[in-house]
Design a protein around this nucleic acid. Structure first.
Lengths: 229, 229
DNA sequence: TCAAAAGTGTTAAAAATACACCCATGG
DNA sequence: CCATGGGTGTATTTTTAACACTTTTGA
């Protein structure tokens, strides 16, 4: 299929910075490119926007195609439009960032990608295009946003302990948090639902499990409540 | 000039939400469209991105062409990519928001625009395309950002009184601020340079003039200082 | 019984808020 | 001399920060 336009148009793409958390640290999902340009190099998953899909739909489609990941928290980050950012031709890219629970999402590399893998945010390989810059901006946004919106829960399993929650913030913000003050604050918000369950298979006292109460949060926010760590 | 591509591409545009402040309230700059679609309707200034310019350059060019405004604080807001947002064809638009000192910028409507005018943010006319939504998101962003980045100064003249500064925040945030506490806080940040000048032509005690010290702010920020109202 | 992490309150310091009067100037 | 907005300090409340020991559990 070919099309003709009266004026030239930039190509429009989406790129995704997918964050995941494991026991060790905060990670980003990268794919190894199977095609030129930058063949063999690591890059953010992404691709061109089709005419019948929104930007967010394009981001979700590409993620699924290239990494197998579905059902995630996705939010627009920034649009990158520098002239030479793609060596072939003009490409403007709308970047998204996503948060997933790393353990729930098994990777499978597919179309256009040789491989897909998680990389620690403080040990990223050199990336194709301007993807290092995009990843850096995404990380900065995540650090900024996680403290005043309850998005960090997206990185955890549905049921989590207060220590897991605290460590999530410590890893993202890269600073220690006082355990007692943290618990006081987070429980005081009345956003967590205390479950009648505790950890299993741990060789020490099992911690109580909690889950984030989305419904309660929405109600509180309507009344002017602002989440804050 | 015509061009042929292998696959269809969305058209790429920019739109600008320009905020200005006067004695009365916070305003947005609109143009009255001189061409279809939505001919005669009010809309955000904007237009298509050319191949040899970045997104920000496109935004600045369109603003200058359509309203005569130059030299302003400009920041990317969000990219809008819903399928039917332009009735003619698929157009993805990168929205920017800008802050100007209303009195320094005389408007002159030009290309594609019949007219350009300032409208109070709480009394906007119905707008073309999805521009009402864009304006709403821009206002929300401004309210959110003005409290933790010193961008509000862009709305004031270079030299301003503390009362003007306070009223700027009151108009944007839409809530009263205590005069003494405000002065204590803002002067305590050590970001304002106290000038040896006072207001002229006022029929009461003339207030001292200040200016924002950009250099000092950058230094402080490097040391971890975070601006906050 | 030991190792490992869970769980729990109080005190001090800092920051935010509430609040009212005198002063300088021009008309 | 009056109207208008400019300029200033203190007391109270709220929020944040610092800090250490006992409990539970499985190995």
């Amino acid at each position: 299929m070919t099309v003709t336009y009266q004026y030239p148009r930039p190509n429009l793409a989406v790129d995704c910075v997918v964050f995941g958390l494991d026991e060790a640290d905060l990670k980003i999902l990268l794919i190894q490119r199977g095609l030129p340009p930058f063949e063999g190099k690591w890059a953010l998953p992404g691709g061109f926007v089709q005419m019948d899909e929104t930007l967010e739909e394009a981001a979700k489609r590409e993620l699924k195609e290239e990494t197998g990941i579905q059902d995630l928290y996705l939010e627009q980050l920034y649009t990158f439009g520098a002239i030479g950012r793609d060596p072939r031709e003009r490409v403007v890219s709308v970047a998204y960032y996503a948060l997933v629970n790393l353990r729930d999402h098994k990777l499978m590399a597919a179309t256009d990608a040789r491989d897909a893998a998680w990389f620690s945010t403080d040990d990223l390989p050199p990336l194709a295009f301007d993807h290092s810059e995009i990843a850096g901006i995404a990380l900065k946004r995540l650090k900024g946003k996680v403290v005043y919106e309850p998005i960090g829960f997206e990185l955890l399993p549905m049921k989590f302990t207060l220590t897991q929650l605290q460590q999530m913030y410590e890893k993202i913000l890269d600073r220690p948090i006082d355990k007692r003050n943290f618990r006081k604050k987070i429980l005081g918000m009345d956003l967590l639902q205390e479950l009648d369950e505790v950890q299993v298979d741990v060789s020490h006292r099992a911690a109580r499990l909690y889950k984030f109460d989305e419904k309660k949060y929405r109600k509180l926010r309507q009344r002017g409540f602002v989440f804050e760590i």
